[in-house]
Design a protein around this nucleic acid. Structure first.
Ligand SMILES: [Zn+2]
Ligand SMILES: [Zn+2]
Ligand SMILES: [Zn+2]
Ligand SMILES: [Zn+2]
Lengths: 129, 129
DNA sequence: TGCAAAATGAAAATGGTTGTCAAAGTCGAC
DNA sequence: GTCGACTTTGACAACCATTTTCATTTTGCA
């Protein structure tokens, strides 16, 4: 029953970085999969809701997904050129967020933290412009 | 020449939290301002590009803007209920981001950090559901 | 005053995402 | 094995924030 969802999950697992719904859809069709775009969107949503994949928004507002190794809370170091992504932990950041929120009387504190950069492989190739 | 842009900036300054382009447009019209939606979008973009206002994306992909007090690099503690926003500094986070990026061979490191919570005023009102 | 360049905004286009709904698949009950 | 209730699927249309177009002001300046 979850064949489609698993297929989407698998496709995501084979990707190095974050991929958009349209990316995943295109790739699956490329590999001969018989699936609709709507279903890909639904599968990704379900996977995200269930905490099986991570989601974030690109600068241009697109949602991108990634099947991370660890199920625990973590953040990402993403290459802005090629998308290569490294999962990173930040105990100091976790504490800081909690503290700063509490200090101002806020409760139920959450946070979003992403780090971007140019990876070593990409910084070797000629500059963009 | 920058009359419109200043008007948009002023409207933003009178707001406590982050506001969307449509919000700003609606409020300006409410107050009798003669301005088009396109111009509001352009003004906000220009202000953001010039570093005069901060931008971030809501969970549903909308861009929201805020005229912050300080021009220096900072982050935000935002009430997810009423939008009240506090500007916060996080030297530890700045260092952590730089370090974690460098450790993995990344250069030109940037980061996005936002903290969300329920402010003391809001946590006094009855629970949502 | 004259006019080229910049700003404006109404309307149309864009594009990712979600809603609709009829067709296809699932599965236990009989 | 068949039937019917329920779920899943996906082509297509609808949404909606944002961008593009482009004709019409407005501005800056000689
Ligand atoms: Zn790279
Ligand atoms: Zn964290
Ligand atoms: Zn609040
Ligand atoms: Zn910072």
């Amino acid at each position: 029953m979850t064949t489609r969802r698993d297929a989407v999950h698998d496709t995501l697992r084979q990707s190095e970085g974050f991929r958009s719904a349209q990316d995943v859809y295109a790739e699956m069709r490329q590999h001969g999969a018989k699936i609709g775009l709507t279903t890909v969107y639904r599968a990704l949503q379900a996977l995200a809701d269930g905490g099986h994949v991570d989601v974030l928004r690109t600068d241009d507002g697109e949602s991108v997904y990634r099947a991370c190794e660890t199920g625990e809370h973590h953040h990402h170091l993403v290459c802005r050129r090629c998308g290569r992504t490294v999962e990173v932990a930040g105990p100091a950041v976790e504490r800081w967020a909690e503290t700063v929120g509490t200090e101002h009387g806020f409760t139920e504190i959450t946070h979003t933290v992403e780090v971007f950069g140019t990876c070593s492989s990409c910084s070797r190739t000629p500059r963009p412009a």
